[in-house]
Amino acid sequence: MSILITGADGYVGWPTALRIASETDERVVLTDNFARRRWVEEVGSVSATPVSDMDERLEAARTELGLSNLSFVEGDLTERAFVDQLLAVHEPSTVVHAAAQPSAPYSQINGERANYTQHNNLQSTRNLLWGLEEAGMTDTHFVETTTTGVYGAPEFPIPEGGATMENDGERDEVPFPAMAGSWYHLTKSHDAANMRLAHKQFGIPISDVRTAIVYGTETEETRPDDRLKTRFDFDYYFGTVGHRFSAQAVAGYPVTVYGKGEQRKPFVSLEDTVEGLAALALMDPAERDDDHVVYNQVTRAISIVEMAETIADVGEEFDLNVDVEHFENPRDEDETHEMEIENERYMGLIGSQAQSFEEGLQDIFESLTAREETIKSHEDRFLPGVLTE
């Protein structure tokens, strides 16, 4: 038996694999097809932090962290034969599925990328779920990082997963409606529905982890050696808003806030993300409350203007003069949206928030100021542009 981590070369997948391997003696099997590296290169950008190749990463995990229970298999999860062989050989007791094309802007470029995103993400998840069923492995705990983006931006507090629907005096609990706003986010809405169906039809225990916007560059396991670092994208397509703003500050650009900027977005640190996924991967089956559980992986909501002002304040500690500028909002959105998300179930996994936004920014600026030239040489990637392919 083993624990399988998909998307293990990625921003979240790699440090999650290190955390899980450090807390278990079980074999931890990593798989990836290195597509994220190709996608970022395709849009003309790079990771600000150096990303070692997988052999170097595994060697550093052995020598620096003492981890001898990691192994890697390269392959494409959209290929059913590969998935079937992966499951048959390694017989995972838990699958942590973190593999996906994760960028909403990339999925919105054109029809080709929208189609690619939906095929890649949905086919991978379906192959894994059906693979478990047809291999007779329906006791395997299936954990997937979906996204809080499946909820959209409703005007009421967002529950952890379900919703109560009332019609003609009758009430029932139903799945939260898919209100996603991009072709990428819809893949996670479909994944959530497919996981629910796989639980209903096959009995597979499911943990649907709806991950907020993740920030940070380090976890406990990535700090000792540069070969252990995870990637950090800062371009328009793959850089999340906090990461992109931070990189702009390092490059000498003002942090741009559209409109009032009082609309709040859900955030979670990389450290807290990794801790939550590891807790689920290593959870005793007897401790699970239910065989289909939704977790809102978020520690707090932060407004765009608060984020910008905090980036400016922390930037001063690194001798950066960061201006915050407001511009007319080109988007049709509520600039005062509160974004309330329930997270009691998720906080029960991690106990308490390990890293605040300010502490995460300290890590980010420490990493980025050491690589200022890399950012400045790709500063044209802060905005959408012509693709290299």
Rank of each mutant, 00 (worst) to 15 (best):
V29H: 02
T211R: 03
T230R: 01
S189P: 02
A193Q: 04
D208Y: 07
V324W: 14
H326F: 09
A98K: 10
P285S: 03
T145K: 11
F327V: 14
T49E: 08
A193G: 01
G10L: 01
P157G: 04
F156S: 12
W14Q: 04
R244F: 15
E287Q: 13
E166I: 09
E74K: 13
G181W: 07
D319Y: 05
I206N: 09
T138A: 07
H243Y: 14
S269W: 13
E91V: 00
S45Y: 05
E218L: 08
F318Q: 06
Q353P: 06
L387D: 15
S269C: 10
T211C: 08
T211Y: 07
T164L: 10
L280Q: 00
E59H: 06
W14H: 10
N329E: 13
D313F: 10
N120I: 05
E338L: 11
E373W: 10
Q355T: 15
E379H: 10
G13P: 11
I109N: 10
V150E: 05
E59Y: 11
A278P: 11
N69T: 05
A180T: 06
S47W: 00
I350H: 03
A153F: 15
N321D: 04
P157V: 02
V51S: 00
K229V: 00
Q248M: 02
T388D: 11
P224C: 01
P102H: 00
T299I: 12
E79G: 09
R331S: 07
L186N: 13
T94M: 10
R126P: 11
G169H: 06
T273C: 15
S303E: 03
V257N: 10
A163C: 07
M137C: 12
E262W: 09
G242C: 09
A281H: 02
D84I: 05
L197S: 03
A104V: 01
V150F: 13
E372W: 05
H326L: 08
P254C: 09
L65R: 04
M347Y: 08
L58G: 00
E316Q: 03
D319S: 09
F82R: 03
P177S: 02
G259P: 12
H326D: 07
E56T: 07
M165C: 15
L197M: 05
A249W: 15
V274N: 00
V95H: 05
E221W: 13
L197K: 03
D272R: 07
I350V: 04
R381C: 01
I3Y: 01
Y237L: 00
W183N: 06
S124N: 04
T164F: 12
S303I: 01
D289E: 14
L129N: 01
S189E: 08
A193D: 04
T256L: 11
E144D: 10
H243D: 12
V83I: 07
S269P: 15
T138E: 10
T164I: 12
I350F: 06
F327M: 08
N115P: 08
V257P: 04
V46C: 10
R381D: 02
V298N: 07
E338G: 09
D139P: 11
L186Y: 15
L129Q: 00
E262Q: 12
L77Y: 14
E112H: 15
E26H: 12
D284Y: 13
G242M: 09
V324P: 06
D313K: 08
M54A: 08
R80P: 12
